[in-house]
Design a protein around this nucleic acid. Structure first.
Lengths: 256, 256
DNA sequence: AAATTGAGGTTCAACTAATGAACCCACGCC
DNA sequence: GGCGTGGGTTCATTAGTTGAACCTCAATTT
């Protein structure tokens, strides 16, 4: 692995539930030597990518990351342009709606609007969705480049529940149906008792960059739920894509 | 420079006004060889820190940065906890109020609430403030560790206007006065015609992590402006620090 | 109070990964 | 059709990275 890759791997050791880590702990989590870990941390810290609490000696993600994130968001306002549509979708369906963004073989939850009902699906910002086991992921794959999909399908796909689809051939067929239908369906693919439908968010070239989904308790999913939610999520995703690209983008326009 | 440092330097080539860059352009901006630049970009891209537009071949900051920023903000909610106080401060003073965060020898503007008046000071999120030439920076320095201040003062300090203070001795004296007073004053230190007062935001150990400031056109700064704005900014900064640390933190409590 | 454990941090010879000059290719333009 | 420009690649040389062993300090344990 390149040195840069190692440095980023170090950053990836942090998450919402482990926002601060010690040197030894970081070395253990990443598998790097303590000396290596420290040298990388210092390099990162000198650029504000990592910060150290001077009394506890613990490391945490630095302010430069926030600065970079703002630059990206200013130019590529994924969240800003989507928030209101997610809220509207949750209201319309009465269920939890969530938006996720593609990032290295996963979709990462970016914004969540939970259902007001007591029995609801709960999702947290930062949660990562495997592509083959969630409605969001399937919607993403259905719109992704064929070569990416093939590469993804040939690796070993984790089975999260007895309902998870892991057979490449079945998945390929499933993706075909999603393309026809316009939205994806995942019946308890990642978590038991959760029924979801999803649709991809597309960039200016028609390639997917994220997904929008509605998740409901499976016990509330009756005959027409998939279609009702599916239409709603498809429409909302289309609107988000359109706004993101400053124009309509439901066609895969590749003329340029 | 370490490879990691170079990789981050590449990220730093992007800013709000230049959110997308080509390979050659990036190599030119950073001074690295084209091959080096590309290899670094690939390493970064494989972790989602950089993204490439497949048709224009231009590179932009990646989604992983946004993910990391969220992890940091979830744990260290600088902006969230401060926003309402900045709005209130702008309202109270009738002038532009802005919050900035320390990041590698500069304060970076994080949130801005502009004055409603036609003749107002305009600040953009992402603007970088030199420590010696702005009210925010001086407030930061006045609360910073002595060894950091000394290191900072011994480098050559840029003169932005005829009013910029660049003499280490004068600055040291100035910082003493700021500590006594509780807020800083910068009369046209960075831009002609801008009068600002500022106060530092402190972490749980009493060390500064950012600053809050009120900036007004110098022509509106009369006799009591400094004191009125100063008191307001000091109070607001104290409240932000307190909320950030979950308790009162205007004393430098180091008992642990 | 001496011994033990475990954390942060450092050193330096061995070694592996980074470097960059020169290269190719594609496209747009005169 | 030749020239300029930008993206991308190659590989011998070179410079940065590695990690076992070490140090220090503070908190437990004996």
């Amino acid at each position: 692995m390149s040195t840069v890759g190692k440095a980023v791997t170090l950053l990836e050791a942090f998450d919402v539930h482990r926002p601060q880590l010690g040197l030894t702990e970081l070395a253990r989590l990443t598998g790097f030597d303590k000396a290596t870990t420290r040298r990388l941390l210092l390099s990162l810290a000198s650029h504000g990518m990592i910060e150290q609490n001077e009394t506890t000696r613990l490391y945490r993600l630095g302010p430069a990351l926030v600065r970079f994130a703002r630059i990206r968001e200013a130019h590529f306002p994924f969240l800003e342009s989507a928030r209101s549509f997610v809220v509207a979708l949750a209201e319309e369906t009465g269920e939890t709606a969530h938006l996720s963004e593609f990032d290295t073989d996963y979709l990462t939850s970016t914004y969540v609007e939970e259902s007001p009902q007591a029995n609801r699906v709960s999702v947290s910002v930062g949660d990562r969705f495997p592509l083959h086991a969630t409605a969001s992921g399937l919607a993403y794959l259905a719109a992704a480049r064929p070569d990416y999909v093939e590469t993804y399908l040939t690796r070993s796909l984790e089975r999260h529940t007895p309902f998870t689809l892991t057979e490449p051939d079945i998945l390929r067929q499933h993706l075909g149906e999603i393309r026809q239908r316009g939205y994806s369906i995942s019946d308890q693919g990642r978590a038991q008792g959760v029924f979801s439908v999803g649709a991809a968010i597309l960039d200016g070239e028609g390639l997917p960059i994220g997904a929008l989904a509605v998740a409901s308790p499976a016990v509330r999913a009756s005959g027409d739920t998939a279609e009702r939610h599916g239409r709603a999520v498809m429409l909302a995703a289309g609107k988000i894509s359109a706004r993101l690209n400053g124009r309509a983008t439901n066609t895969k326009d590749r003329t340029r």
